[in-house]
Design a protein around this nucleic acid. Structure first.
Ligand SMILES: NC(=O)c1ccc[n+]([C@@H]2O[C@H](COP(=O)([O-])OP(=O)(O)OC[C@H]3O[C@@H](n4cnc5c(N)ncnc54)[C@H](O)[C@@H]3O)[C@@H](O)[C@H]2O)c1
Ligand SMILES: NC(=O)c1ccc[n+]([C@@H]2O[C@H](COP(=O)([O-])OP(=O)(O)OC[C@H]3O[C@@H](n4cnc5c(N)ncnc54)[C@H](O)[C@@H]3O)[C@@H](O)[C@H]2O)c1
Lengths: 207, 207
DNA sequence: GGTCTATTGTCAAAAGTTGCACAATCATAG
DNA sequence: CTATGATTGTGCAACTTTTGACAATAGACC
């Protein structure tokens, strides 16, 4: 504990722990152990204890972890003890799914605005009721609102340019769904989601 | 080269390399280098060369890699030099986006069938034209067709049971979108996609 | 209060991964 | 046909991550 540079790979597991704790809480459980969490997540109990120890001492010997307490601490560590506005670019099929996704709210995120380039879409509402704005106004709106997180759900050939606009406007965290590796300044964090990449990882192991 | 147990972390990068090569090819490029690939992907050139060397020698000293040749080899290695039928469970917002996603075809995948539990949806068509079938028939249909890959896009509380059905019917690779860590036999490979997990990974680094 | 069981937090060892550096070699130009 | 420049594949060293083991200790029970 007391480390001042936690490995990124450890940080990446914290949301998984948090998700598991929320799940247990919904099941009216009050206490859990590194062993139980590990079994559920397919991770060794030692690793969970080690990971958590970077941030403090959250458990009690002989007993384990109070779920609500550890959950709150993880939320704080991950900075999701607040709501983050997220700006969505691309109001296609995927954008629609994301805009109406109920799962964000409980986990710290709110899709604050959506942008598209298609004149037939601009001015209309997305399934969730969010207005589709003109991507021409993206930079100004992001700057004015001070949004820090962007989700990119446009075709691959538009993704880098959208990313550049977002970064230019002050966004410093990007979640990219387009099947392309974005290039961004090292001060900007990028996470990529590409189902084909995951599926191809799987097929390697299929005869 | 000649290894007979390639680290999973290496396998996980191959689809990224493949994607980058396809992108370069679309740009009418014929030759690339580990240096160029690395710059685009934010990976060291040495790592790319090392990764590839697990599978053979694909480059030429002084020149680099012939894009089409390396691409074909990676497709073979990842077993996407063929089309895989994929079974989709859950015809909600996300299922709709996945069913009509144009990006799968070029990368080895075809959504062969979709299932849902909602009587109002069963019998109707998804946006892409795919018939929504009754999840009650899931096991029998999977068994009969011999599908090996499943995508789970149902709510979290139904995901584990759907996974169990799929595995019971012979599926050995799962892509899970539900925000829950699935438990599966070790013979079954599972990949998880959860945008909130990615976003929380990002927010850790935001003050 | 003492004993027993469960479980943490942590140290050190083991295992795994990445990066460095360079000989080997290919293409090109003189 | 030799020199030059580029770039691979790889052995080895450095670094990172995971695992095993266990003292410390909380709580339950007698
Ligand atoms: N549909 C899926 O399930 C799925 C899954 C994974 C990844 N993706 C990827 O996500 C992205 C979006 O997928 P989709 O299925 O929603 O595609 P889509 O074609 O339905 O939607 C893309 C939207 O982006 C808009 N757009 C295009 N250029 C733009 C620009 N410069 N600025 C703002 N908006 C712009 C289009 O008008 C359209 O509304 C694609 O890159 C796709 O490869 C989609
Ligand atoms: N919408 C998104 O952008 C998004 C993003 C990430 C993850 N997810 C997750 O993906 C899953 C689906 O999301 P969604 O937005 O499409 O939800 P949704 O509610 O729109 O759709 C879920 C579908 O699953 C069906 N279903 C429920 N139980 C079923 C069962 N036992 N068998 C078969 N079908 C069943 C429902 O009838 C419904 O059609 C959820 O777990 C969600 O958390 C969604």
């Amino acid at each position: 504990m007391g480390d001042r540079q936690v490995p990124d790979i450890v940080v990446g597991r914290l949301p998984i722990y948090l998700r598991a704790l929320t799940f247990l809480k919904a099941d009216n459980r009050e206490i859990t152990s590194s062993q139980e969490l590990g079994d559920r997540l397919g991770i060794s109990s030692a690793q969970i204890r080690k990971d958590l120890s970077h941030f403090g001492e959250f458990g009690k010997q002989g007993t384990g972890y109070e779920i609500r307490y550890l959950e709150n601490n993880l939320k704080e560590i991950l900075h999701v003890d607040r709501m983050w506005d997220v700006v969505l670019v691309g109001a296609g099929d995927l954008g629609n799914a994301l805009a109406s996704y109920k799962g964000f709210a409980g986990r710290g995120f709110h899709v604050a605005a959506a942008f598209d380039a298609d004149p037939d879409k601009i001015g209309h509402e997305m399934p969730g009721g969010l207005l589709i704005e003109d991507v021409a106004n993206l930079e100004a709106r992001v700057q004015a609102a001070g949004w820090k997180i962007g989700i990119i759900a446009v075709p691959a050939d538009a993704a880098q340019s959208v990313a550049n606009t977002l970064v230019g406007a002050g966004v410093i965290a990007l979640l990219n769904y387009a099947p392309i590796s974005l290039i961004a300044p090292s001060s900007v964090r990028v996470e990529q989601i590409d189902p084909a990449v995951h599926l191809q990882h799987l097929t390697y192991y299929l005869g």
